[in-house]
């Protein structure tokens, strides 16, 4: 991938995460960045859950295949 494509992809991900964080913080009137960052962290966590699960399943599958 070219550098410009990486920049484009990362920008899209950042924009997406920002939109999600803002909509999740709608009813909260933050007096600091803390709630905002907390929500952002939780959104990233939920986005990573499928990736972590898939990686674990893949590693288990590879280990079983290696054993057999």
């Amino acid at each position: 991938m070219k550098r410009i494509e990486w920049i484009l992809a990362i920008s899209l991900v950042v924009i997406g995460l920002s939109c999600l964080t803002m909509s999740a913080n709608w009813l909260v009137t933050p007096d600091s960045m803390r709630p905002y960052l907390n929500t952002l962290f939780l959104i990233c966590f939920w986005a990573c859950v499928p990736i972590i699960v898939a990686t674990l399943l893949y590693l288990i599958f590879r280990k079983k295949k290696g054993d057999s």
């Binding site: 991938m1 494509e5 990486w6 484009l8 992809a9 990362i10 920008s11 899209l12 991900v13 950042v14 924009i15 997406g16 995460l17 920002s18 939109c19 999600l20 964080t21 803002m22 909509s23 999740a24 709608w26 986005a47």
Partner: peptide, 28 residues
């Protein structure tokens, strides 16, 4: 209407997030 606006905003966020991953995934 306010909730709907937030839903639209979160949908746009989801779309952009997925689009970012799609760019990398489709190239790979």
């Amino acid at each position: 209407q306010k909730v709907r606006q937030m839903l639209v905003l979160s949908s746009i966020g989801t779309f952009f997030l997925a689009l970012g991953f799609t760019v990398v995934l489709s190239r790979k």
